[in-house]
Design a protein around this nucleic acid. Sequence first.
DNA 1: GTCCATAGTTAGGTAGCCTAACATATAGTT
DNA 2: AACTATATGTTAGGCTACCTAACTATGGAC
Lengths: 144, 144
Amino acid sequence: MDDIELHDLARRYRDILRQAVYLVRSIDADGELSTGQVATLNMIAAQPLRVGAIARNAGIRVPSATEQVIKLGSLGLVERKADESDARVVLVGLTDAGRSALAEANARRNATMATALKTLDADELQAVAKAIPAIAKLNEALAS
Amino acid sequence: MDDIELHDLARRYRDILRQAVYLVRSIDADGELSTGQVATLNMIAAQPLRVGAIARNAGIRVPSATEQVIKLGSLGLVERKADESDARVVLVGLTDAGRSALAEANARRNATMATALKTLDADELQAVAKAIPAIAKLNEALAS
DNA sequence: GTCCATAGTTAGGTAGCCTAACATATAGTT
DNA sequence: AACTATATGTTAGGCTACCTAACTATGGAC
């Protein structure tokens, strides 16, 4: 694929992405938890993470992550634990309430998306499914 | 495609989209114009729009659009004109400076995206290209 | 002409990000 | 062991972009 086509693809991809960004935000606005909050909860679902790791994964600075953690903590969704081997470290994990709030939020968001996906025909669904790994790779390339 | 698969696709699609949202923001952060500002300028590139139309297209409220227009106006990128047939209406159009700033911003963003696209192989590029119309349709479905 | 609807602005508030400055803990050096 | 440099978070203060509520001015219906 030559440069001209590549630039055209870039333009078209950016166009739909811009729209999608807005839509994701509006889907998320339905619930009580913001996009960023759900993203943070998802991150620590598998195992507790330090504040710095949350910041890095979310693409924000450490003080912003601290803020988020404080907020989520005051909502009772996360808890802060000490790291046994390093007293500087704060480990942030889900509470039971956090776990169920996350499950609910994810379910609602996925359901909305699934409903939208139903409007696509089989070929289009196939196209989206096939593109996902490529987009994931693209995301990685953009991240660096 | 049955419901279970659909929900799985929804989840995976939401995952990469969430990442992409963050990346779009970080790409945009490189320039002097914010994501929203460029989106607004793009909107009025073809023909001047009223403040209300800008708000609707951008998915924001009218007062927020007013703010944006004021900001862009003070940067000399847009100009406000009266509508001849309705004195309540404010038409917002690009100035020459706005047009060239927009071209520059788009070029820079597309170039960044094109560079990232170069890391994909032919099959992956094909997959992205094919998915774009489907995603556009999906966006429409989500918008309603 | 009165009344309601529409277009936009102004005022005031909030969420979520930022940088700079700080406190504390660890690790490395002598 | 003491001294210094590095790493982890928090606090303080500020900015942008959004919001709702209240307002002004124009337009349209009756």
